[in-house]
Design a protein around this nucleic acid. Structure first.
Length: 139
DNA sequence: GCCAACGTTGGC
DNA sequence: GCCAACGTTGGC
């Protein structure tokens, strides 16, 4: 299983919106960046991801799971753009902020720190475990 | 609101 | 195929 990180502005689509979709999940549409899309095409059903609030919050708030492989993005006529579906698994007991991540030597290589603009990012297993620890939830 | 970083576009 | 110009993102 691989680990990922999904970024969204909570004003547009936040954790609460994701939770409201329940186990059916929701397609992660609107991505118009090749790197982010390629990450989604590499995902398998059951892969786990962090849900990060950009712009407002600046923190990882919960864990999601990929529940459908990449398929055409329903919000685009351009067949180049594909996306997966994800569903909320559980919230963190304590959100993990960008500041906390930056301050943790074990997390200095996270893509979130190195390339904060990429909206769908890979996360290593070590990073996954560490962030879950900080978030007060099991990995 | 600013600005640095990054990605994309398009003229040559 | 290069690179300058431009647009967008997102932390600060």
């Amino acid at each position: 299983m691989a680990y990922w990180l999904f970024k969204s502005e909570p004003d547009t689509w936040g954790w609460d919106d994701q939770v409201a979709k329940g186990d059916a999940g929701q397609e992660w549409d609107g991505v118009r960046n090749y790197q982010a899309r390629n990450n989604m095409k590499a995902m398998q059903v059951g892969d786990r991801g962090f849900f990060y609030h950009s712009q407002k919050g600046l923190e990882i708030v919960g864990i999601v799971e990929v529940c459908a492989l990449a398929h055409p993005d329903s919000t685009s006529d351009d067949p180049r753009w594909e996306c997966v579906d994800i569903r909320a698994v559980r919230p963190f007991a304590r959100p993990v902020s960008m500041a906390e991540i930056k301050a943790d030597p074990a997390l200095s290589e996270m893509v979130l720190v190195k390339n904060s603009r990429l909206s769908v990012q890979p996360v290593t297993e070590d990073q996954w475990r560490r962030v879950c620890e900080l978030g007060g939830t099991e990995a």
